[in-house]
């Protein structure tokens, strides 16, 4: 692994409720105009057997995500992680987060930067 891509965001999408706090927290932190920002929340509706469906939300880091370097170098969590209402986002070293992923299903690890 290149040292440049050492950190990531772990998302527990079982618990993402689609509150959009991450999206607005990022816009506030970097003063992005509406429509832009480092993270965007997606709604995914899965069709299941027997007429059932499953509703999932998934925050996706965009090309504008800087993994909150100005914050993390001060020891602060990224703005999205700090404000996530369901506490489903974790910032950390990719290797640590990958270990964390083995503990429960419905997790995704993003390495945006």
């Amino acid at each position: 692994m290149s040292k440049k891509h050492e950190y990531g965001l772990l998302i527990d999408y079982e618990y993402c409720t689609g509150c959009y706090s991450c999206q607005v927290a990022c816009a506030q932190e970097y003063n992005w105009p509406a429509g832009m920002g480092g993270i965007r929340v997606n709604e995914i509706i899965q069709k299941l057997p027997k007429g059932k469906h499953y509703l999932t939300y998934l925050p996706f880091p965009t090309e504008l995500c800087v993994l909150c370097k100005p914050r993390t170098k001060k020891g602060l969590p990224p703005a999205c992680v700090k404000h996530c209402m369901s506490g489903c986002m974790t910032y950390g070293a990719v290797e640590d987060l990958a270990k964390e992923m083995t503990k429960k299903p419905r997790m995704v690890l993003w390495v945006p930067k």
Partner: peptide, 12 residues
Amino acid sequence: QGRLCARALAMT
């Protein structure tokens, strides 16, 4: 506990 909603975060 430190969390905050989108509406409060848009106060600026």
